[in-house]
């Protein structure tokens, strides 16, 4: 039972962390290697919010807005010149990640920061005492996934974004402002990354490098997932599940590299990952 809970909640956390990256990659075909830095920014939003004495829950909208605004600036000044050079975009955003990390260090210091747990304690699930916050993370992942599905399927923005994914030239000819769609998509992606940063704080420490540890894993998941949230959920469940199973039955050290190695093998066998299946 606890193995099952571990699998679904671990997958949920991975899903939350990877959504921002997927949003950007799905529509813009750009890998935001500063994703880890945005998670960190989100974490520090939580620190700043609680330090000013506000409710820790308020950090969620704050981080979304801060992440989004930084995203708009980044899209405009760093990513926009690089749409034709996707590999260079990886590098430029990686460099940006370094810069953001150092700025955070200069402002907040190197120290590990603390935030109160959003939901402390455990809940009884079928006789197992299980972390209440992890169960909440599962809920949050589902809400995020459904919310995004609604955004893509049910709104004008989603329709435009899908048009850009399918055929950008055609979308432009049809009169869609593709530049604006790109900016908005990037903003949503980075906003979500900030949000994910806040959601991570009860599970991790907040320090200038907190996001980097999650970067490679989410990158791999997004590569395997392709462009849809459905396939991302599948990827998180399968690879996250594999990580938990390997950690439990073989070795947590191997578990730590399970996602990266499996993702590489999956992509070798099926270059488009799960999006084709």
């Amino acid at each position: 039972m606890s193995l099952f809970l571990d699998v679904v909640t671990s997958s949920a956390v991975l899903f939350i962390v990877a959504t921002g990256l997927l949003t950007i990659f799905g529509v813009l075909k750009i890998i935001n290697f500063a994703h880890g830095a945005w998670l960190t920014v989100g974490g520090y939003c939580a620190v700043a919010t609680t330090q000013t004495g506000l409710s820790p829950w308020l950090a969620l909208p704050v981080a979304f807005v801060v992440g989004g605004v930084l995203g708009i600036l980044t899209e405009r000044f760093i990513v926009r010149p690089l749409y034709a050079r996707p590999l260079d975009a990886i590098l430029a955003t990686w460099g940006l990640g370094i810069v953001i990390g150092q700025l955070i260090t200069l402002i907040f210091g190197r120290d590990v920061q603390f935030t109160p747990s959003l939901i402390p304690g455990t809940v009884d699930v079928f006789g197992t005492a299980y972390s209440a916050y992890r169960l909440f993370a599962l809920l949050a992942a589902v809400v995020l996934g459904l919310g995004f599905a609604f955004l893509m399927e049910g709104t004008r923005l989603g329709l435009s974004a899908r048009a850009v994914i399918m055929n950008e030239t055609l979308a432009r000819i049809l009169g869609l402002d593709t530049a604006k769609i790109r900016t908005v998509t990037f903003m949503i992606g980075t906003g979500l990354a900030g949000l994910a940063g806040v959601l991570l704080t009860p599970l991790t420490s907040v320090d200038p490098n907190m996001g980097v540890a999650w970067l490679v894993g989410s990158f791999m998941l997004v590569m395997v997932a392709g462009e849809s949230f459905g396939t991302l959920a599948v990827a998180c469940l399968l690879l996250g599940g594999a990580q938990v199973v390997v950690s439990t039955y073989v070795s947590p050290i191997l578990g730590g590299i399970t996602i990266a190695v499996l993702a590489a093998l999956i992509l070798r066998l099926s270059p488009k990952g799960f999006s084709r299946a």
Binding site: V216, M220, M223
Partner: peptide
């Protein structure tokens, strides 16, 4: 490098290899 492999894939593998070696 297999037929049809993408430039991204090469970059991904180049990330995985140092992680595995370090581990």
């Amino acid at each position: 490098f297999y037929p049809g492999s993408s430039a991204f894939y090469a970059t991904i593998i180049s990330l995985v290899v140092p992680i595995v070696v370090t581990q």
